[in-house]
């Protein structure tokens, strides 16, 4: 089974937009991937048909077959039935698909599934359950930081990552740090209160 060579950096992986920018032909290959990361050219070509991959999702190793063009978001939702991350803009704009990749928040719509191998993927389902909620999830409920709830999973993941980096955020930190997620119903006020509450109650590990 061909295995893609992994880039050495533990960055969020290439974005699909960068990928398309670099791509001059329709065929998908890891040569493009390594090109983006400035590595050598001695890599195997993946696809265009399905390839077998392994993804570590919420602590479990999952095996699946996908075409190399399949995004991490589609792989999670359509192949693995992990549907917490939502597909909204599908273009790195709205943040509804935010997941953690090795602890860093990324837009799963703009990471290829093949690129997420050998990384720890955490979705909103991996943070907590209705019975045992993560502090951010609990604060979202208590401050009514959701209405229709479609942006909520992405926001919860983004807030958890944000609070990890900014345990005591001020309003300017919050505006910038959570500016990558959009809500249509207008739940920002509840989200601000939820973030402040988590910080005041000892942070995300409390």
């Amino acid at each position: 089974m061909p295995k893609p060579k992994q880039p050495e950096q533990t960055s969020s992986g290439i974005s699909r937009r960068d990928f398309f920018k670099s791509s001059t032909v329709g065929a998908v290959s890891t040569a493009l991937v390594s090109g983006v990361h400035g590595e050598g050219s001695s890599v195997e070509v993946l696809g265009p048909g399905e390839v077998g991959i392994k993804l570590n999702v919420n602590g479990k190793t999952r095996r699946l077959r996908v075409e190399p063009r399949v995004t991490l978001l589609d792989a999670l939702r359509s192949e693995l039935d992990v549907t917490g991350a939502k597909k909204v803009c599908d273009r790195s704009t709205c943040g509804a698909c935010t997941v953690l990749l090795d602890g860093k928040p990324v837009y799963a719509c703009s990471v290829l599934a093949v690129e997420a191998q050998d990384k720890q993927i955490v979705t909103v389902e991996g943070l907590g359950t209705p019975e045992k909620m993560h502090p951010v999830q609990k604060a979202f409920v208590e401050n009514d930081a959701q209405q229709c709830g479609f942006c909520t999973p992405g926001f919860v993941v983004a807030c958890a990552a944000f609070l990890e980096k900014h345990p005591n955020p001020d309003i300017e930190d919050l505006k910038k740090g959570l500016g990558g997620n959009l809500c249509r119903c207008g739940t920002y006020d509840g989200i601000k209160k939820a973030v402040k509450q988590v910080a005041a109650e000892g942070g995300i590990n409390a």
Partner: peptide
């Protein structure tokens, strides 16, 4: 707080 809050914030 809304009854479906917990399922919404956990992706369920």
């Amino acid at each position: 707080t809304r009854l479906d809050g917990p399922v919404k914030v956990t992706g369920k």
